[in-house]
Nucleic acid binder design. Structure first.
Lengths: 219, 219
DNA sequence: TCTAAAATTCAGTTTCGCTTAAGTTGCTTT
DNA sequence: AAAGCAACTTAAGCGAAACTGAATTTTAGA
């Protein structure tokens, strides 16, 4: 799950980033509003968290442009303002949700989960492939009803595969879900995790297509 | 997937080329800006990566001309400049994306994927020929509803045929989709893959026209 | 700070897709 | 009808890609 976090305050930005990372999001932190649109164009983000109080380009501007371009990216807006008027204005601009500082970090998490659920095809709380089930919200995984405990990265790979059940997911795509850009990794980490997942779920669970990617079967 | 890589720096050019090749792109590397337009005219490229700091003809010029000619080719610009102004100027000239040196190779990959998805996502839902369907984005192929798993090169040939359904596609055209120019291979590889595809989809699926090429029927 | 678990790297092994090559089939032309 | 050429098919070797167990490094929690 990739998030673009746009926040100019250094302190807040870094701490939000690490909090989100520990919730298992892949986070890119951007401080300069002017870079946001190019980043979005390139980035394949699932969500954006946008501070409205930016220098250079205002958050409002960014939002307007995104929506003008018909980009359906879910956006959660952060702001210091807190009057009802401001809030309504923000939502009218195309924000999907709104949070006023100071806020509770867990509330942010909850809202992000909800946003994501809403955007990624509504009522599908549980991912299923064969006898393996994954509940994204609680990150609980079961095989044939039995609980399986996975580590964060194992989950990240599994989730990427299962949300794309039936389709091949490339190695680099899987890496994207695990890492923030610039974490340059020159290794076979993905392969290792694929190997681990097969140990948990059986060797037939994940199919390999050489030099294309991996997939799990649908349903 | 064919990419035209325009980069005058020898070192960088070569290493980018090999990196892109290993990501399964067919890459042509051009060092001289003056050759770019003729190449584009001939080349059938899906993407272009353009360094702005070229000798002879400047990258800006090239971009301008391409857009003036209404060529919708997705272009990613590379440059050493990195001020916001330059970036915006680049985008205004018609670049679809922008990356400043030094950059992370994985970021480049991500951006290219995204570029391609955007440009091809526009008008290429599913390719259909008879009871065979191919979803280019996900690389999923079905015959009469049944899933068929193809290898990377098999897919490459099939995709080329199906995007040109109803028309004959020459052998060398099919090779282009699989290889980088200069790899000029004197062999019957294409024939081998045609043979394989017929095994999967029936001998009537692909029609041969001697010394012209192959085609699948439209719709 | 220390320790255990997780993440990552490394290296040896295995697998499988690509290519080649050689023999066969089947058009086409004289 | 025969020759010549293009396409078809099959099978095998090679090499790149993937797999996996274990060692090493990093991280997070006590």
């Amino acid at each position: 799950m990739r998030i673009l976090l746009v926040e100019d305050d250094y302190q807040l930005g870094e701490s939000l980033k690490s909090a989100l990372s520990s919730e298992n999001y892949a986070v890119d932190l951007e401080r300069d509003g002017a870079n946001v649109l190019p980043l979005l164009r390139a980035g394949d983000y699932d969500l954006m968290v946008l501070d409205l109080g930016l220098p250079n380009v205002s958050g409002d501007e960014i939002l307007k442009k995104i929506r003008a371009a018909d980009d359906p990216l879910p956006v959660l807006v952060l702001t210091a303002r807190n009057t009802t008027e401001d809030m309504i204005e923000g939502l009218d601009l195309g924000a999907d949700d709104y949070l006023t500082k100071p806020f509770d970090i867990d509330e942010l998490f909850a809202r992000l989960r909800s946003l994501h659920r809403r955007s990624s095809g509504r009522a599908r709380p549980v991912l299923i492939s064969g006898d393996v089930e994954l509940e994204p919200k609680t990150q609980v995984v079961t095989k044939a009803g039995e609980n399986v405990t996975l580590t964060a990265k194992e989950l990240s790979v599994l989730e990427a595969l299962m949300t794309n059940a039936g389709r091949f997911v490339s190695k680099s795509r899987l890496e994207e879900g695990m890492y923030t850009w610039g974490d340059e990794i020159e290794s076979n980490t993905v392969e290792v995790y694929i190997s681990r997942l097969r140990k948990y779920f059986g060797s037939g669970f994940i199919e390999t297509l050489r030099s294309v990617g991996y997939r799990v079967k649908k349903g």
